[in-house]
């Protein structure tokens, strides 16, 4: 009997251990399945126009898709493309013009997988009383622009498109943080920014008793895709299913953020306590017309059409003085991951 008891006890122990090991393995399998890690590289510091990524995390769009997402702030679109290309991030947001430039310089293992802005975000910001009401009235005035920005590159091309000599407007290149104070102090007459950045500049102008005026460059013939979601070639080839889920969840997060910009801004605040909810809400609101417009309605959310891609490339090529056939714009996108 003692022998039987021992053998039963051993049997039970074996069963219990097998069950425990099985549970652990299953648990590990489930958690691995439930937590496919995706690192997202932003093209700039946390801001309202990137709120949809934070909303994706905080509102659970990514976790419901079985994704564990970490967000890395960036230092510009070129930096974001480089970080994705070097494997420091799986996916990211960046201006598609940066990817086109990189492609023209020899190419990078990165593809745009979803369009976010179907209109260009670049704008001239000035104030009432500056005498600037359109691009023609800007002749002879001073404009401040960031030292490194894709907006700088397209600026001469936009002027030429409007039959204005680029030399007729004085350019002052400065750090982005110095632009609004210079405008408020009247040291320059206008600044070149993304329209999504205008709420912070409006804040500074209001403190100086000035009212901001925005001249979107899309009103002056600038067409093309702006911000896009990109993925590394490694992610595309090795984890296509994860990427597909990420793209779908991002689309849901964008839809949520455009509907509730205030909630999306609060989601940024939960991750970045130094953020200003009011400014972030305005930034997200400012990006809505770049996301939801007649182009996205016609082509579908996230789509890339060959004609608009070609137009985007033509602007980049003209701005950067590149040969028109240097890049096949279709070669830098991969639209297989966009959901219906």
């Amino acid at each position: 009997m003692p022998l039987l008891r021992t053998s039963l006890s051993r049997k039970h122990t074996t069963i219990a251990l097998s069950w425990l090991a099985g549970s652990l393995l299953m648990g590990a399998g489930l958690s691995a399945q439930a937590a496919d890690h995706v690192s997202v590289q932003l093209d700039w510091l946390p801001a309202g126009d990137k709120a949809f990524i934070y909303a994706g995390v905080k509102e659970g769009f990514y976790s419901k898709a079985g994704l564990d997402v970490t967000i890395r702030p960036g230092r510009g679109s070129s930096d974001a493309v480089t970080q994705i290309a070097s494997g420091n991030a799986d996916v990211g947001t960046a201006g598609i013009s940066s990817l086109m430039q990189a492609a023209a310089e020899g190419g990078v293992p990165v593809k745009a997988v979803m369009s976010i802005y179907t209109k260009q975000p670049d704008a001239v910001l000035t104030y009432e009383g500056s005498g600037i009401t359109d691009l023609n009235s800007a002749i002879g005035k001073k404009i401040a622009m960031p030292t490194f920005s894709s907006s700088n590159d397209i600026w001469p091309a936009v002027l030429q498109h409007n039959n204005i000599s680029p030399g007729s407007i004085t350019e002052i290149k400065t750090d982005p943080s110095g632009m609004a104070p210079m405008l408020a102090q009247g040291r320059v007459d206008m600044t070149l920014n993304w329209v999504t950045q205008s709420p912070q500049i409006e804040d500074v102008l209001t403190q100086a008793g000035k009212k901001m005026v925005t001249l979107p460059l899309s009103d002056y013939g600038l067409e093309g895709y702006g911000l896009a979601l990109m993925a590394s070639q490694k992610m595309i080839s090795q984890r296509p299913d994860v990427l597909k889920r990420f793209v779908k969840a991002t689309q849901q997060a964008i839809a949520f953020s455009t509907e509730h910009p205030d909630k999306a801004a609060e989601d940024v605040l939960k991750a970045v306590p130094e953020a200003d909810v009011a400014v972030m809400t305005k930034q997200m609101s400012n990006s809505i017309p770049l996301i939801n417009n007649e182009i996205s309605t016609r082509d579908g959310m996230g789509a890339f059409t060959p004609s608009l891609l070609s137009t985007t490339w033509q602007w980049v090529a003209r701005s950067m003085d590149l040969k028109a056939d240097a890049v096949d714009p279709q070669s830098i996108v991969d639209t297989r991951f966009i959901g219906e």
């Binding site: 510091l45 801001a47 702030p73 230092r75 804040d203």
Partner: peptide
């Protein structure tokens, strides 16, 4: 150049939002 935390990052973030 690259960080998500730190006083240098906070300076960069604050100046970019004019705080």
């Amino acid at each position: 150049v690259a960080a998500e935390h730190g006083l240098g990052y906070l300076i960069l973030f604050s100046t970019s939002s004019f705080k």
